[in-house]
């Protein structure tokens, strides 16, 4: 028994969870607990009250109006295996498969990963690449926050202390959608040194008409690479030949300039993910493989 003592309440209704969160300045939400409990075991986190949200009806996957809406209690293992997620949001399925180990993925949740905001985490970067929306519920109502604005810094988000992430929303993968998440970790399942998510959409003529990209493990939040890839000429390209891959890699690497461990790595991962994304968009097979670079 390593954590410091704390009080515990299990919420069965959203209103109860929000009230409990507001009742104590040192209250903390527990969902999967795969990041929080290690911090508590090391006594780096000492919440006075844990509000357990696992009984809330938020383990949901819905597709409507061309959006995939995922409840915050969807566990990584479900993102990885759920047929709807694999088809409609293949980048999230691929990213989830790269998180930790099976026992971690059996417990860890989408909302937990987003709210914890570890800069090395895969799902926040995937959400930024997808230009997704984080749905936060507070006592004043629901806020829809762009993933691009949600992450503020290391383990810090724009979420108020008494707000709860209840879900995320991403666009449904179109017909000629290609997504890829590449990362490098010294050992399978370890925190990645860096990772890059790329998602593109081609028109009927095979021209890239939409793109998103983000890196994890670099900087204190996910690094949005949308502009970098756009400026490098990926938008409007119909092929990713060596020269486009090389110039894009160089541009992406500059976002990690000064970080000797990551500068080249980010470039390589970006090129690899971009190459995958084009191949998958063309082949009509947008499903990820979950393999590391």
């Amino acid at each position: 028994m390593k954590p410091a003592p704390f009080e515990y309440v299990r919420a069965t209704q959203l209103g109860d969870a929000l009230a409990a969160l507001a009742s104590d300045d040192d209250a903390k939400v527990i969902a999967g607990g795969q990041s929080l409990v290690p911090l508590m075991a090391l006594r780096l986190a000492r919440p006075a009250l844990l509000v357990d949200v696992n009984d809330l009806p938020l383990d949901t996957v819905e597709v409507a109006n061309n959006e995939v809406r995922l409840g915050s209690l969807v566990r990584h293992v479900r993102l990885e295996r759920d047929a709807v997620v694999v088809r409609a949001a293949p980048l999230l399925a691929e990213a989830a498969a790269l998180i930790g180990y099976p026992a971690i993925r059996n417990r860890g949740t989408l909302g937990g990963s987003v709210a914890h905001a570890d800069p090395a985490a895969e799902l926040p970067a995937a959400l930024v690449a997808l230009d997704g929306v984080v749905l936060a519920e507070g006592r004043e109502g629901t806020r829809r926050i762009s993933a691009r604005d949600f992450f503020e810094g290391f383990l810090t988000t724009v979420l108020a202390p008494d707000e709860l992430v209840v879900g995320v929303q991403v666009p449904v993968a179109a017909e000629r959608h290609g997504a890829s998440f590449r990362e490098w970790a010294p050992r399978a399942g370890d925190f990645a040194v860096a990772g890059v998510a790329v998602v593109i959409e081609l028109d009927a003529g095979g021209v890239c008409v939409s793109l998103g990209a983000a890196a994890c493990g670099v900087g204190s939040t996910p690094v949005d690479l949308h502009e970098v890839l756009t400026d490098a000429g990926v938008l409007g390209a119909s092929d990713v030949g060596d020269s486009l891959l090389r110039s894009t890699a160089q541009a992406a690497a500059r976002t990690a300039r000064g970080d000797d461990d990551r500068e080249q790595l980010v470039g390589l991962l970006t090129a690899a993910a971009l190459h995958d994304a084009f191949a998958r968009a063309r082949g009509g097979d947008a499903s990820g493989t979950g393999v590391a670079a």
């Binding site: 075991a41 293992v77 026992a103 971690i104 417990r107």
Partner: peptide, 15 residues
């Protein structure tokens, strides 16, 4: 039925 790390799960969560 799912493998989990029992050190990262509080017993009170096992209701």
């Amino acid at each position: 039925g799912a493998a989990v790390r029992s050190c990262l799960l509080f017993a009170v969560q096992c209701e």
